[in-house]
Design a protein around this nucleic acid. Structure first.
Lengths: 108, 108
DNA sequence: TGCCCAACTATAGACAGCCTACATATAGAC
DNA sequence: GTCTATATGTAGGCTGTCTATAGTTGGGCA
């Protein structure tokens, strides 16, 4: 799958993988890969800026840790991040329904 | 629906509305609106460049008409446009399935 | 007659958000 | 001692949306 297609939906995906369990950036990258069943390979150069963006807009918050000599920024959803995720879910649902109907529709 | 979300999928939608019946640019704009049940309002400033792009890449072809004093460029699918539409359909299907699974998934 | 709106095509410029490529550093395996 | 996995991050490019603007013709209405 061309990863470019996720444009505009990445934020929702990141929020979804962070739901329930906090993760650091690298972990988010891996989680996206695993959750997609290997279909998605979002590069770190895409994920880190996305995390910074989400943090700036208050949807996630970060705590700095050092584990085995390695610096980690562990992100978790904020309350408004949880609300944003629910919005993303329903708007994705609506979007997917509309596009599926439009693109699959047979010629009149 | 935020129209920006269609980014990367507009070409498929345009090809889909052109399947079966040729349309001019303005007609494509209206067809997108109608087909989406009013959910989508793609501005002309988005559609015309998209049509030119599709024409340049050989997926649609245009014929110039003059109807009631008004200039019209009527577009129809080419053979490779038809193939492209089928590709768009299956890749959309795959994409939607993956994203739906990822975003709806409950926390572990 | 004059004015506005719908039909129709089109371009310029802004902007967001992906991408690739690179930089940096530690730990552990070989 | 070199390579790979882990881990974070920035710079710059590119594509494709967007908004805003521009112009033409025909028809309805005052």
């Amino acid at each position: 799958m061309k990863a470019d297609a996720i444009r505009g939906h990445l934020d929702g995906l990141v929020l979804a993988v962070l739901e329930g369990r906090p993760l650091h950036g690298y972990g988010v990258v891996q989680a996206l890969h695993v959750r997609s069943g290997g279909a998605l390979d979002v590069p770190t150069g895409t994920v880190y800026p996305a995390l910074h963006r989400l943090e700036r807009s208050g949807l996630i918050s970060a705590k700095e840790h050092t584990v085995a000599g390695r610096r980690r920024r562990v992100y978790q959803l904020t309350a408004s991040g949880r609300r944003a995720l629910n919005l993303e879910r329903s708007s994705w649902q609506e979007f997917a329904t509309v596009i599926t109907a439009m693109i699959q529709q047979a010629p009149s």
